[in-house]
Amino acid sequence: MAYLELDRVAKQFGAQTVVDDFSLSVGKGEFISFLGPSGCGKTTTLQMIAGFLDPSRGAIRLEGKDLTAIHPAKRGLGIVFQSYALFPHMTAAENVAFGLEMRSVPRNERAERVRAALTMVGLAGFEDRHPRRMSGGQQQRVALARALVIKPSVLLLDEPLSNLDAKLREEMQIELRQIQRTIGTTTILVTHDQNEAMSLSDRIVVMSQGKIEQIGTPQETYEKPASAFVSQFLGKTNDFAGTIDRTVAPTQLVAGSWRAPAPAGVSGPVIVSIRPERIGFGDAGLGAKIVTRIFQGNHWLFQCDSECGPAIVIRQNDGQPQPAEGEAVHLTWRPEDMSVRARAGA
């Protein structure tokens, strides 16, 4: 049973359709990420759930009740903004207490819950600091505590970590995931960072130009991308132009000198996509020459010039000898590691 449900939601600004036909059902306690490039409508979707924007079409339901009929102040959602939007004239504790005050929580209980929330985000002892006197990471934690202390039915996070430096971002990711696991709040995270979406979410909603490209677990979206956009956006990928060879039986899929039995249901010119870490060097296969070889500690990165255009290959640094720059090699992969789709305009 869906906890939060978006049913063919769309948003238009004048003639411009910013979000279109957005349907999603979120289970209770689930961690969902909206992933997509800047301007694809992630924030707009989140703001419709929060109630700061009204959908042009479609319905949003929480536990079966129409959410759009409820005023944003009464929805009881916790929201962390990209800019944090802390109240600069209040201390950290006052910021966190604000939502409880609005709910007329008695003073003693309020103080107790504020302390617990600040401790949870690792800010015990910072109660009396003003936001301007805190670092970006600390402000981020206050914003999280402020959103969580009201025990929201859904936690909405709009690029919460994008203003932090790389190391802090990684720390906060782990912490965010732990906190979410502990308290079990249904969470929607907006991000344009695929690593962040992968490492945090139960499911990812990949968006492009206001439309959903794919909904799936991080593994599904990475390994079985539903479209070229998804495979390009989620990490590096190799796209080779291939053809179906019907002169032999059974029919074969051919890319350069690489060939394998053709998967069922494909015909004509195709695009073959393979992740770089799924390609190996073999005795036969797609002919290629190593252009550059880059050592990256736990793996090697090869840039190759293949029969089907440029290709990248990633090999684990497992102690085996690796081909040198300029060496001629053959690229091979298992048929189950590739995804094949029809080649448009050919």
Binding site: A73, F81, S83, F87, M102, R146
Partner: peptide, 18 residues
Amino acid sequence: LDPQIENAAMSLGAGPVT
């Protein structure tokens, strides 16, 4: 002012006067 500050307060349950 942070452009989202009013939304932040609203999401925490504050009415327009507050």
